[in-house]
Design a protein around this nucleic acid. Structure first.
Length: 221
DNA sequence: ACCCAGGGTCATA
DNA sequence: TATGACCATGGG
């Protein structure tokens, strides 16, 4: 049988990997820090940076904001792009304070808060939506490079649809507007990419069938 | 030695 | 609007 819709892919992934409890973070603020650090960066490297921050006891917005710039650069160096990301973390702290923390942010409608997030220098659409979905707990579909590659390759997402907001709209129109669904969907896509596509690119037991059956969507790009 | 990783910004045409 | 350069480290 051929996978022909986003929800069929979702159920195939869910059946194969089981329920996911994401994002890997101990607090909403740590989640936001991780969202910045993982930009175009392997999560393995992000964990090293997060470990340094945890050990230094600076994984709180008001504490992190007072850190010395050079010291912070040293802590997050393993995550790469450390100068940009240090600057972005300071901006994140400012935003967090000005919006009065998670509770303050939750008072706004999702669309409004999304604009606020996008106004922060260094927070783009994927980072903003990840934060909305996992830290603010708003139902929104996160688009990443895996999503586009896999769904284009499966023939579900038309090739003409490339822009972030267009891809997101495509999924919003074809899925239930549910927090848990979107949280798990994104997690499952990432886990499938890491655990399956990267390690077993030619595997004929790919849970997404056409994704990996004749060359992995991830590796072929 | 190469390629990639859970993006985003900026300059240029 | 749409490409390309740049950011930087660590694992496969």
């Amino acid at each position: 049988m051929k996978l022909a819709s986003p929800m069929e892919v979702y159920h195939a992934l869910l059946a194969h990997y089981g329920e996911q409890h994401w994002w890997p973070a101990e607090s909403p603020f740590e989640m936001m820090v991780g969202a910045i650090l993982t930009q175009n960066t392997n999560w393995n490297n992000v964990e090293k940076a997060l470990d340094n921050l945890r050990e230094a006891n600076v994984l709180e917005a008001d504490v992190l904001a007072t850190c010395n710039r050079e010291t912070l650069e040293t802590w997050i160096r393993p995550a790469g792009f450390f100068r940009q990301k240090t600057e972005r973390l300071f901006k994140l702290c400012m935003f967090y304070h000005e919006r009065e923390g998670i509770k303050g942010m939750k008072r706004w409608p999702m669309k409004t808060l999304r604009h606020f997030l996008l106004d922060v220098h260094g927070i783009g659409p994927e980072t903003a939506d990840s934060i909305l979905l996992y830290a603010i707990e708003k139902p929104i579909f996160v688009v990443d490079s895996y999503t586009k590659r896999i769904f284009h390759r499966l023939g579900i997402l038309p090739e003409r649809i490339q822009k972030y907001d267009d891809v997101q709209h495509f999924f919003h129109q074809r899925t239930a507007n549910a927090l848990s669904l979107y949280q798990q969907f994104h997690a499952l896509i990432v886990i499938h990419a890491k655990d399956h596509c990267r390690k077993k690119p030619q595997c004929d037991a790919c849970p997404l069938l056409h994704c990996c059956q004749s060359g992995c969507a991830i590796q072929q790009g």
